[in-house]
Design a protein around this nucleic acid. Structure first.
Lengths: 199, 199
DNA sequence: AAATTTCTACCGAACGGTAGGTATGTAAAA
DNA sequence: TTTTACATACCTACCGTTCGGTAGAAATTT
């Protein structure tokens, strides 16, 4: 049973990883089941045996990715840190994921900011909104506590933060050189908090 | 002769617009020539008559879009404005394009930040780099003139700016409500320049 | 001015190929 | 002996593309 489970798990995982890489590289429509099966070293029906359909693989990748992202962000909730430190931590968490799971990160990045409106991906925006709302609340909290300027609109601030975060992830995903670092994260957050102007 | 030219132009334009919308909505691979021809009210071979291939349409859309973006940014070069004012103007230009040509803007947005690495789109990064370099130079200039903080890294600053710009465009493109405005542009830029912290 | 040729702007039908998906079989494990 | 974990061979639908053609305007010749 243990052996079977391992085989089952490893084959399934293999397909999962290959599919994530291919979808990340080329987008949903441009990837064929033949490609996935070949690169996974399996036959096509085996893919169907595990995932049922092309949509099936994709949906499972999305579900897994979304839950990881949400937990990465929301796990900062109960930490005893300032808002700035929390924002810094989230930035670093994403930078870390970007370095260590670039293909999966790319898959999620594409999913969130790209085209390919797929009919079967309906209730996905709800998940994205939860992330956004958490960030807005974080900024609101920073304003209330006096850490951030009271004239700041928390929603706009959250959008600025998200935009910057996503853009640096995309820059990293586009090159082989390492561009993201803890130092850069500190730098970015300092710039956002303190501003670009000369004092 | 004049009439013929108009017919030629209008048919071509029709295909162009329909293709831009479809590519923006679904991505390159998910759009078929049948779809384009049907929505343009023409036969499939007619599309080939004008554009030669699916790649042909796409490439022409890209070329057109890239040149528009570059000119939008680079046209600010000779203006007698402060760096902050120039950044503000660019922001507003893009917001404007986003409101008035949402489909084309979406097409370009997808092109720049999404998956679908297409083999035939090789020398495209060069164009993107030109845009980035212009912005970096703008920030460098602001630092030199004392308008921006001397500890600011112009490259990082340019990336922050671009990330924020793109993200707000994507937010607008995802909803039917109007979210972008000149006021918002002022707000965003003020936040970036002055920072989020309480003084 | 009439007849002829040429060109533009299109279309229906069909091509080879590939897509997602499946009916059926089998070898090994439980 | 049944179930699990695969593979072979195949299906239909649709893909991008091309072929062969045509209506009609424009240019040229007679």
């Amino acid at each position: 049973m243990i052996v079977t489970d391992n085989i089952e798990q490893s084959t399934r995982k293999k397909i999962f990883i290959v599919a994530a890489r291919l979808f990340a590289e080329k987008g949903y429509s441009a990837v064929s089941m033949r490609e996935i099966s070949e690169q996974a070293g399996l036959s096509k029906p085996t893919i169907y045996y595990y995932f049922g359909s092309k949509e099936g693989i994709y949906k499972e990748l999305v579900t897994t990715g979304v839950s990881h992202i949400l937990s990465a962000i929301e796990s900062t909730y109960s930490l005893d840190l300032s808002v700035k430190e929390k924002l810094n931590l989230i930035l670093k968490k994403f930078f870390y994921a970007c370095q260590n799971f670039p293909e999966f990160t790319k898959f999620m990045s594409n999913l969130m900011c790209s085209a390919e409106k797929m009919d079967f991906m309906v209730n996905f925006r709800a998940q994205t909104n939860r992330k956004e709302k958490f960030l807005i609340n974080l900024f609101r909290q920073g304003i209330r506590s006096g850490e951030l300027d009271s004239s700041l609109d928390p929603k706009t601030a959250a959008h600025i933060y998200t935009g910057v975060l996503m853009h640096f992830i995309m820059i990293q995903l586009a090159t082989k050189e390492i561009v993201l670092s803890d130092d850069l994260a500190d730098n970015i957050l300092n710039t956002l908090i303190s501003g670009m102007r000369k004092l």
